[in-house]
Amino acid sequence: MRWIYVLLLFLLLILSGCATVKPWERESLADPIMIIDENPIDAGMKEHFIDYREGSEGATGAQSGGCGCG
């Protein structure tokens, strides 16, 4: 896990230092087509079925409950 924290620390320092987008410049980013997983409930349900079909899971941002089908 150590490398994850190092990576996050690095990204935090590097990327946050170059923030340039002001709140009034975010009209384009507020468009629904620019939002990642705009509907988290729907994303979670889709991920649930894929988790059962494949041997991998995680790092998707989606969340769902456990079940006996997996």
Binding site: L7, S16, T20, V21, R26, I36, A59
Partner: peptide, 18 residues
């Protein structure tokens, strides 16, 4: 971790340990 890259781009990094 999410970061705006400009007025029309953003990047996200996701990690998980289970």
């Amino acid at each position: 971790f999410s970061q705006l890259l400009g007025k029309s781009a953003l990047i996200q990094f996701l990690t998980s340990y289970s």
